[in-house]
């Protein structure tokens, strides 16, 4: 069993209206050092497969097929045994 941790974030060159609005709110609340806010999704999946490589490949495929929008989002996949 492997735990696959996936982070899906807006691509760097894409506008992130939510991140921008939250940054503004943090500045208003006095967090004056807030340079940038980007808001993405954190997805944890448990996979019953044999190897770490297999789990990783499956995580990447899941991102490509469903979890991430390739036009607007980028993703990272991390795997650890569990």
């Amino acid at each position: 069993m492997f735990k696959v941790t996936i982070n899906v974030d807006p691509k760097k060159d894409i506008l992130d209206p939510q991140g921008k609005t939250v940054q503004h709110a943090l500045l208003n609340l006095g967090f004056l050092h807030t340079e940038q806010v980007r808001i993405g999704k954190h997805i944890v999946i448990q996979l019953q497969v044999d190897s770490k490589e297999e789990a990783h490949a499956m995580g990447v495929k899941m991102c490509q097929d469903l979890l991430a929008n390739p036009l607007t989002e980028e993703y990272s996949v991390e795997v650890e045994p569990c």
Partner: peptide, 10 residues
């Protein structure tokens, strides 16, 4: 170029 993203709040 990159996809246009709409911000209805703005």
């Amino acid at each position: 170029g990159s996809v246009q993203v709409g911000d209805p709040f703005l």
